[in-house]
């Protein structure tokens, strides 16, 4: 685990540093700019899907989906980050406690 933490931390630091060392003309490549803008959107959306539905390599519909739905509504209502996460956790715990979904 430590190895993973250190390698990933070093790698993301070098990414930050890289832009200060490269010539500015690099930014004028439209394709690079576009791709770095879209990558977080793809990865974060995929993470939402996987973290909501996956249990190892199986799909499971469980109380996490309720939590995500509550988070979605909270975001529509412009709730701040911590409130969104808190409401998702509480609603999921509640559904489990009632015993509607695992």
């Amino acid at each position: 685990m430590w190895m993973t933490v250190i390698v990933a931390s070093l790698g993301t630091y070098l990414e930050k540093l890289l832009g200060y060392l490269l010539p500015h003309s690099f930014l004028e490549r439209e394709s690079i700019r576009r791709m770095t803008g879209l990558l977080p959107v793809s990865l974060l959306a995929a993470l939402v899907a996987v973290q909501t539905f996956a249990v190892d390599d199986a799909v499971s519909i469980d109380a996490r989906l309720i939590g995500l739905t509550v988070a979605f509504i909270a975001l529509m209502l412009r709730a701040p980050f911590i409130v969104v996460v808190f409401l998702a956790a509480i609603s999921t715990a509640l559904i489990r406690w009632i015993g509607w979904l695992p």
Partner: peptide
């Protein structure tokens, strides 16, 4: 899991994506 922390993870990603 009891506190719904596993559901906090996708909610956090959704909030980062939003």
């Amino acid at each position: 899991g009891m506190l719904g922390l596993d559901a906090a993870i996708p909610a956090g990603f959704l909030a980062l994506l939003w």
